[in-house]
Design a binder for these strands. Structure first.
Lengths: 195, 195
DNA sequence: ACCACATCGAACCGATCGGTACGATCCGGG
DNA sequence: CCCGGATCGTACCGATCGGTTCGATGTGGT
């Protein structure tokens, strides 16, 4: 085996396991809602290990958010790719995927937006910004493939729908939120095509 | 003077002053970002007074959010009323008002949504729910006056745009977010009218 | 077999948290 | 003038916070 000398018991694996296990807990209860002590207890990990890997609680939070953002975008990209090449179908697929997410009992809104709402300055907000940026890329890409005049503008409007639907689903829990959002998105696409 | 016996120095006035002064501080730094001690110091009020009026920090938070929600809706209703009777103008006025808000340096997103993102169960979330409900009433009302087939559905789609634009403006800071949202809203209105 | 190192578990740190208690002060209605 | 109550300022409470330290344990590479 070249490269990857690594010492013992593989710290990288430990780190990844921490990130994976801490994610749902921090998402469910909020970043400030769960202390490092309890976090370590639930993870079956000592505080020393946690601090060696992440330096501070914020380091863990950042890693967790980064991983979650990555996961979300992979999942979204897969949902889009699964329906073929038609831009309208792809757009509908985005909101159908969101609708499936909203119905999960653990759904608590967008983790990145929630985190940014409580950690005001920090690099945490940067993660949220990048998350929205990647969402924008996906939506603008669909808009571009649909051949609209202003794909970036349409992408931004669709981004608002995505995040708005997530907020409404989280805090105003109406069953068909994603369906309404999908219809709105398709209407915006149609308007951009004809305009 | 009948009624309003009141003891001395008017506790109601004190309470109102606390709510008004605490609002901006809690909004700027986040609910968990400012402790009761500092809060009292900045307000020029003793902890005993605060706890006599609100029982607990959450009581103050709830009162502050309630007051803010009220203020927002009065402000929005005024912006809508100022442009006359045309539904499209009224809808545009909503997003123009939002755009003015987004440009304020203290803008940090929707206070109620931010609060609900960190206080998970609680009556705080109920305040957020009512806040969105009132927003929905305003938007559905505009939709109804526009004579669309499904005013409630259009209201919900517009609500997503409002909250989505606020999230995007707060976390993805693009200058013309409100303009994009307004165009999207008008497009949805037009689509609902013709559809 | 040995050693470097990752990990654990628990003790410990100072700071801060939300909340309470108390004496001093001050104001307004009788 | 005087008393009830609203207020202040401060000290104080136990709990918890994020973070550090250390000895014990166990594992893997050599």
């Amino acid at each position: 085996m070249p490269v990857a000398k690594r010492s013992t018991i593989d710290p990288a694996r430990t780190r990844a396991a921490i990130v994976e296990a801490a994610g749902p807990l921090l998402y469910e209860r909020g970043i400030d809602g769960v202390g490092v002590a309890e976090l370590c207890a639930r993870l079956g990990v000592s505080k020393e290990t946690l601090y060696r890997h992440f330096g501070a609680k914020d380091g863990l939070v950042q890693a967790v958010l980064e991983a979650r953002s990555e996961r979300v975008h992979r999942w979204m990209a897969a949902a889009v790719a699964a329906v073929g090449d038609d831009p309208a179908d792809q757009l509908a697929a985005v909101f159908d995927a969101l609708g499936r997410w909203y119905r999960e009992p653990e759904f608590r809104g967008c983790a990145m937006v929630n985190a940014a709402a409580q950690h005001h300055d920090d690099p945490v907000r940067a993660v949220t910004g990048r998350h929205l940026g990647r969402y924008l890329d996906l939506l603008s890409g669909i808009a571009a493939r649909a051949g609209v005049a202003d794909p970036d503008g349409l992408g931004r409007r669709l981004l608002m729908l995505v995040e708005g639907a997530t907020v409404v689903a989280a805090h105003h829990g109406v069953a068909d939120t994603a369906v309404q959002a999908r219809e709105a998105a398709l209407a915006l696409l149609a308007a951009a095509r004809s305009g």
